[in-house]
Simulated scan of single mutants.
Amino acid sequence: MRKMWSRSAALGCAALVAGACQTMDPAMAGAGQPAPAGMMAQPDAQMQAVLDQLAALGARPVEQLTPQQARTQPSPADAVKALLQRSGRSTAPEPVGNVQDRTIPGPGGAAIPVRIYTPAGTGPFPVIVYYHGGGWVIATIDTYDSSARALTNAARAIVVSVEYRKGPENRFPAAHDDAFAAYQWVVNNTASIGGNPMKIAVAGESAGGGLAVQTAMLARDRNVRAPVHVLAVYPIADGDTESPSYTENAMAKPLSRAGMQWFFQHYPRTPADLRDPRISLTRANLRGLPPTTIVNAQIDPLRSDGEELAAALRSAGVTVQQRTWPAVTHEFFGMCAVVTKACEAVQFGAAGLRGGFGM
């Protein structure tokens, strides 16, 4: 067991489902060259282009900023949009059948904003309750719009993207409570949004990946209908920063070890919260959880979290698929418009979801 600590994704590709995603030249950058300092590998050409554009937009490491400043600076999604503009390509979001913004009841009567994406065609459709990333501190459903759209089309499912509360204004377990409350609302109101109540899954990226897993745990423990599948994309699954990938990718971009330590300062109430099984999932009781798909990036401090979570789930008897994509970084998942491996990862995640839906 590790020692306790002492995204804004981008636009998707409308042709994803057809497998005809138009992307940049996938040739690897710096083949045979040593990895940059603090990174275990050289990003490929497409990933490096996004990182270079993000730097050109003036993005700074979050640990140098206040939460308010971090929420308003350029994101990887902005970098992808700028790359598309530079190449004369459309920056329009990937089309889906319908998009609706609304609010649902949250803990204590507080409203939770959600965005409901419905695929084209006739339902009822399966439903995915989706939690965005941002370390429980930054980013919004707008920042992760591309991931939600991509999953809507690739999984042929309604996606309910949840705008949970964030720290430091709302500390642990506010985001976790909102995540479960949104799932309960979907379970109780599936038909009203055109969904199939027997085919509900949970998914998320980074902090949202952890929220998806803990939601499945709470459903099990509180006798709420269980999700049929969990998709966790580079999830936060342990509350420390001393794993192999934190060491290998200590200075990675857009997420570094110092960046994760910053998030761990602004959401938990005390360091003890980082040992709570809702955050440190690898230490939790994982028995009885639904089949799970985990996506990781090689150049990411959270890679070990995902790999260790997969091992812990298998030890608990849970069916798991886990894959780490080489030469890409944290936040790559929603970048299908400019990163080929993002298209592959979306299809991998969607395949797991469709399997849970019996499709």
Rank of each mutant, 00 (worst) to 15 (best):
G109M: 11
S75Q: 11
D273T: 08
Q22R: 15
A327G: 01
Q69P: 03
L65Q: 10
A207R: 04
V230R: 11
A45M: 08
T319F: 12
A59Y: 06
A77M: 09
L151W: 09
P105N: 13
E344C: 03
N223Y: 13
T143K: 12
S256V: 14
V99H: 08
D276N: 14
G358T: 06
T241I: 05
E344W: 05
M198Y: 04
D178A: 06
D273G: 09
A55Q: 13
M47V: 00
M24C: 08
L353P: 05
V162A: 11
A120L: 13
S245A: 10
G259A: 14
L231A: 01
S8K: 02
A29I: 01
R60Q: 10
G167M: 03
T319Q: 04
P124R: 00
S206N: 05
Q69Y: 03
R102H: 03
K253H: 06
V213L: 03
R149S: 03
L255V: 07
T329K: 06
A79G: 04
Q85S: 15
V224R: 08
T140C: 02
T293I: 12
P326H: 02
R102G: 07
L51P: 02
Q33Y: 06
V230S: 08
G334W: 03
G195I: 02
C343P: 06
L83F: 12
P113V: 02
M198S: 13
A312N: 08
M47A: 08
G356M: 12
Y117A: 01
G239C: 00
S147I: 14
G167T: 01
R283S: 14
R287C: 00
G121C: 13
Q48P: 02
A154I: 10
M28K: 04
R257M: 14
K81Q: 15
A316S: 13
V129T: 06
T241A: 04
T190M: 10
S304E: 05
A312M: 11
E307I: 07
P67H: 01
R60M: 14
K341W: 00
A272K: 12
A110N: 11
H132N: 11
A31N: 05
R225T: 14
G317V: 04
A110H: 14
A10I: 10
S8F: 06
A111E: 11
Y234M: 09
